[in-house]
Design a protein around this nucleic acid. Structure first.
Lengths: 225, 225
DNA sequence: GTATTATGAATGAACG
DNA sequence: CGTTCATTCATAATAC
């Protein structure tokens, strides 16, 4: 568990996730298993999406009798599905962040795997973490620094406060804006499923009540109010 | 379909899934969350089934003038059904991914140049792809698996939570995720869901059975060969 | 509550 | 083949 997966839970701190709320939920799957499940769902979402699209195409051409897809409303049974997909990605604690920054500034040449292990061990003393987290952190950190350099160097590196303003990638001419990349729904996301069919409405209603209260059973809210 | 309600295990089914081996896996969700996930999958299966039925009904009514649902743009809409933001990086469609996974698990992982060509040809039916893409994919896939193996095999003893006391052989990373995926490629194959094959229902049923007894496919013992 | 930003994670491609 | 880079995606954090 860990590497290939993500947000390596490390099996530690079982109850820490929701502990603040007094809801230390237990773990019934490994992160890998969870991810796999998630992927399965994504595949089904994709399939459903395709089916829906084709149906719409069909119904658009001729108002076929019997089945009408016209009144599709995006209530979406999986509207709250994102809760299911809720993956608590690792968030470094301030202490961990400081240590990471320090190491990064030290000999940030190549965080070899051995180094990663050491760092992970050290950071484990300050909170939940896994080697994958450390590895990713360094990768991201490096990439970000590099990007900043490229962003300010080629054009004008002066008063231009290019915090994250996309100017121009020196190698690609069609590179889009990076700030535009924020949310671009293109992947088969379950949330995008929008359709309604009388035949399946019963099924949907069945879960509707279930999914509606999913939120309440996921104490993943960071802030308590 | 659309059931998945027989999850009587409740919170008690925490570690029992792994059998009497002694809780070989960690837990990342509560039983309620797991149940909800199961239901989500069941719903998707149900929806797919319903849609397929509807589609068959439609196609049965008339031969459909312009829309031929044989095998054409089933996957295209997922991938290209979006922006002109032509991505320079190849992104496998779900269909392609499934095929690749299947081939990878088949054992044909041997990167034969000839094999690559064949695979590329097959995948070309489901979207733009090149031999390089296939080659890279297999390389990455292999490296990734190996990395996972390296990470999970040597050190399985975690600090606080249940430790890895499974009798699993550390030689192969045939963990749950792997076996999971091998099962995956049997079920949600978008390519098969092109609304002409009655087998789809059975395919979906597969999931149903799976979801109702998720615990049986989670045991880490699985099949490591 | 919604929109935006920051950043952890995933992955195709490239480097050695 | 193994490792690293670059890009993209998803989500926690945050601003509005």
């Amino acid at each position: 568990v860990g590497e290939g997966g993500q947000h390596g839970d490390g099996a530690a701190g079982v109850g820490v996730a929701g502990g603040a709320n007094g809801v230390p939920y237990v773990k019934v799957m490994t992160d890998e298993q969870l991810e796999t499940l998630r992927k399965q769902i994504a595949i089904y979402a994709s399939i459903c999406e395709q089916l829906v699209e084709m149906h719409k195409t069909l119904t658009a051409q001729q108002d076929l009798a019997g089945v009408r897809l016209g009144n599709l409303y995006c209530d979406s049974l999986v509207n709250s599905g994102h809760k299911i997909t809720a993956r608590q990605r690792w968030t470094p604690t301030p202490v961990q962040l400081q240590i990471l920054e320090r190491i990064f500034n030290q000999g940030n040449g190549t965080p070899s795997k051995q180094k990663i292990k050491e760092i992970t061990s050290e950071l484990s003393q300050h909170g939940q973490i896994s080697e994958t987290n450390v590895y990713n952190w360094f990768q991201n950190r490096r990439a970000r620094s590099k990007r900043k350099q490229q962003n300010s160097a080629p054009n004008n590196a002066e008063s231009e406060a290019d915090t994250e303003v996309e100017s121009r990638s020196p190698k690609e001419e069609k590179t889009n804006s990076e700030m535009f990349q924020s949310q671009q729904n293109q992947a088969p996301r379950a949330e995008d499923l929008c359709f309604q069919s009388p035949e399946i409405s019963s099924e949907l209603h069945f879960v509707d009540s279930q999914t509606t209260k999913v939120e309440s059973m996921f104490p993943s809210d960071g802030r308590n109010e």
